[in-house]
């Protein structure tokens, strides 16, 4: 299985772990992730304005590149995934955006949303299969009680992201079961951690992050996992000392697949 792989800005710098572990695990699972040469930062936030075209172009380039290669486009960072999937949806559904973006880009053939954007977790669920993942686990995380943190960007808006039930997701719980651990369900798993506000209004971000971590702790978690560098930062740096630790899901996956030490 070969995929185009869009790492995004943060995975190249502050979230190298998310990226490195993700690649190692993919390799172990027999998946080839090909990083395009010239990808550009997606901007980290989906430009909701319908007249915002320039800010959508970097995503369109990555999408068009994957189309040329005839590959699905895999993302790992929740924010990149959100931006790419929504821009892709615009290119498919919104005639004006499609027309204007193509006018700017002047591609060999106009891009019309043909590429299939999938998150690494979707790849594990739909392409690898959690059953097969389970078989590949060498260090089952048996004693761990893990609280998955979905946040907002993976799930919403549900109609566009088509990732999981936005109010009752289970993909990360299934993932946790596949690596042998016990998932912990808690109410704030799909409520926002306030990450986007960390620069603008740190207090608000702390309040939200505190509520999320608190909820996971109350539910008895000893570890939280996430797919988003911003959430990870927020749930780590903006909560009281000694709170339940948070990791990228790829890190615990690497541990389970026995490839963590290779880093």
């Amino acid at each position: 299985m070969k995929y185009s792989y869009y790492p995004g800005c943060t995975l190249k710098t502050k979230a190298k772990d998310l990226d490195r572990y993700g690649r190692l695990c993919a390799e172990k699972l027999g998946i080839i992730l090909e990083e395009p040469d010239n990808w550009q930062c997606c901007g980290g936030v989906y430009p909701q304005g319908e007249d915002e075209i320039a800010t959508k172009l970097s995503s369109v380039r990555a999408l068009a590149d994957a189309k040329e290669k005839g590959q699905d486009l895999v993302t790992l960072c929740s924010a990149c995934h959100h931006v790419l999937k929504r821009v892709n949806h615009d290119m498919k559904q919104n005639e004006t955006i499609r027309l204007r973006a193509n006018n700017y880009l002047k591609l060999d053939s106009p891009y019309q949303g043909e590429t299939n954007v999938i998150h690494y977790l979707e790849m594990l669920r739909d392409k690898v299969g959690f059953d097969n993942l389970k078989k590949a686990v060498v260090n089952p995380q048996t004693d761990r009680k893990i609280a998955p943190y979905y946040g907002c960007l993976l799930l919403r808006p549900g109609k566009v992201m088509a990732f999981d039930d936005p109010e009752d997701p289970r993909i990360m719980e299934d993932f946790i079961r596949a690596i042998g651990a016990t998932p912990v369900k808690y109410s704030q798993r799909n409520e926002c951690c306030g990450g986007y506000l960390t620069l603008e209004n740190k207090k608000a971000a702390q309040k939200r992050a505190g509520a999320v971590v608190d909820s996971a702790e109350q539910a008895g978690a000893d570890l939280m996992i996430t797919a988003c560098p911003l959430c990870l930062y927020n749930l780590d740096a903006n909560v009281p000392e000694g709170s339940v630790p948070v990791q990228y899901f790829t890190e615990i996956l690497a541990e389970a697949l026995g490839v963590k030490e290779e880093v």
Binding site: A15, G44, Y196, L199, Y233, A237
Partner: peptide, 25 residues
């Protein structure tokens, strides 16, 4: 948000994404 106000808000772990998205927004 002005670009020159950002350095003082940075800490070691802050991901790029936070800065990029704040500037976008």
């Amino acid at each position: 948000m002005k670009a020159d106000s950002i350095p003082e808000k940075l800490d070691e772990k802050l991901p790029q994404q936070a800065i990029v998205s704040a500037m976008r927004k």
